[in-house]
């Protein structure tokens, strides 16, 4: 077995094995382990960091978008409430205006009515007076025609008044 045989003292190639192993392994350690590996690890680390940063940025952007949307929603609510209030106020005011105008028209109409009523009353009074005088004349005429007696105008008037007014 050559592997065991080389460990015996009189073997020629043990020194060569150890020398070349140390040379080659030291070369690998220095060039690859110390030279290339840290650069590759730095690349991987940089990539991991970039991915983490990008994820954090995306998360922040998401949060900002959420805040923006919330803000927008609040503004919408506020403006909707303001609009509703304005509409209610306008309605209120319109109702009050209408009421006031109605009251005014009502008052005017009432005035006109009472004026018309007094007119009617006056007309009725004058008409009554006229009827009285006409009735008195007619009564005195009738009396004169029927009895031939002359009735004084004053007496006729009083008699008519008594009949008319009970």
């Amino acid at each position: 077995m050559p592997q065991i045989a080389q460990l015996t003292a009189d073997n020629w190639y043990l020194a060569s094995q150890l020398f070349w192993l140390l040379v080659v392994f030291a070369g690998i350690y220095v060039v690859i382990g110390r030279g290339m590996l840290p650069k590759i690890e730095a690349t991987v680390d940089a990539r991991d960091r970039k991915v983490a940063d990008d994820l954090a940025a995306a998360k922040a952007a998401h949060a900002a978008a959420d805040a923006l949307e919330e803000n927008y929603r609040q503004q919408g609510d506020a403006s909707r409430a303001a609009a509703q209030k304005a509409v209610a106020e306008a309605k209120d005011k319109a109702a009050k205006d209408a009421e006031k105008r109605l009251a005014k028209v009502d008052a005017e109409l009432g005035e006109k009515l009472s004026a018309a009523e007094t007119d009617v009353a006056a007309a009725r009074k004058s008409a009554m007076a006229e009827i009285e005088s006409v009735a008195a004349e007619a009564a005195s005429d009738l009396v004169a025609k029927l009895s031939g007696a002359k009735v004084a105008a004053g007496d006729a008037k009083a008699a008519v008044k008594a009949v008319l007014h009970g």
């Binding site: 020629w12 190639y13 020194a15 060569s16 094995q17 020398f19 070349w20 192993l21 080659v24 070369g27 690998i28 060039v31 690859i32 290339m36 590996l37 590759i40």
Partner: peptide, 23 residues
């Protein structure tokens, strides 16, 4: 000690070069 370049050393060097190219 006599140090000789052997087939063992050759394959170590081949492994090192292959590894170096891979890296």
């Amino acid at each position: 000690h006599e140090v000789v370049f052997t087939n063992s050393a050759l394959w170590m060097v081949v492994a090192a070069i292959t590894l170096g190219l891979f890296m």
